[in-house]
């Protein structure tokens, strides 16, 4: 299972990540970070849909997103 991790203190809530997510699982939370922006998040129940495509991380201007993918089993 792939997953994304948001470094919320860097997020500026521009939501460009939500426009490129093929699964549309990124949404804006109602939480504010220290800078006063409403941060982007993926709800825990939606995380299983993440494919680890890294699109959100590529378009994020603020290096907020880290993407993890499951290690393939060695043959």
């Amino acid at each position: 299972m792939a997953r994304v991790e948001f470094r919320e203190e860097r997020c500026k809530g521009c939501m460009l990540c939500s426009t490129v997510c093929p699964k549309k699982i990124i949404c804006q939370s109602s939480r504010f970070n220290q800078q006063g922006y409403k941060v982007a998040e993926v709800k825990a129940e939606d995380m299983e849909n993440c494919t680890g495509c890294t699109s959100c991380a590529l378009i994020c201007p603020d290096l907020v997103i880290k993407v993890y993918r499951e290690e393939k089993k060695e043959k």
Binding site: A2, P61, E71
Partner: peptide
């Protein structure tokens, strides 16, 4: 199950929030 980091900020980028506006490229 082990997982690997497939996307992270390059090391050359200093870990400091930028002064740019939201959505600035």
């Amino acid at each position: 199950m082990s997982e690997k980091l497939v996307f992270d900020a390059p090391e050359i980028m200093i870990d400091r929030p930028t002064h740019y506006c939201p959505g600035c490229h």
